[in-house]
Computed example of a mutant assay.
Amino acid sequence: MKAYYWESHHGNFGDDLNLWLWDALLPGFRDVHPEVLLVGVGTVLNPVLLPVGQKKLVIGSGYGYGTPPDVTDAAEWDVRAVRGPLTAAKLGISTDKAITDPAVMIADMPEFQNLPKIHKKTFIPHWESAEFGMWNAVCEPVGLTYLDPRGEAKSVIRHIAQSELIIAESMHGAILADAFRVPWVAVSSSRSINNFKWNDWAKSVGTTYEPRYVPVSTRAEAVAKRSRFWGINFDRQEPARPAAQDTHGGEVMTHTPPSQSGLRGMAKQFLAAPSVLALWQASRAEPRLSPVEVLEERKEKFRTMLEGIRRDYF
Rank of each mutant, 00 (worst) to 15 (best):
S94N: 07
E7H: 12
L279T: 09
R80E: 13
Q245C: 11
D31W: 00
T304E: 10
K55F: 01
S94E: 04
S259N: 12
M105K: 03
F180H: 01
A153S: 11
D312T: 11
L115T: 04
S259D: 12
E297H: 14
M305T: 07
S94H: 07
V138K: 07
R30E: 09
R226E: 15
L25Q: 06
V252A: 15
V79L: 11
T122W: 08
A74I: 08
H9D: 14
T87R: 08
R212E: 13
L86G: 02
F196N: 04
P125T: 01
P242H: 10
A273I: 03
S189W: 04
P211N: 09
I93E: 09
V187Y: 03
Y5S: 09
V39Y: 07
V39D: 10
T208A: 12
H255D: 15
E131T: 14
P274Q: 06
I157W: 04
T87Q: 03
M109H: 11
H159G: 05
I167W: 09
A168R: 02
R236I: 12
P125C: 06
A186H: 06
A98W: 01
A224Q: 08
T256Q: 11
S163T: 02
Y63T: 02
K299L: 00
E307Y: 05
A267R: 14
E131S: 06
A243G: 15
P69T: 09
K121M: 05
K97T: 11
G11V: 01
R83T: 11
W20V: 00
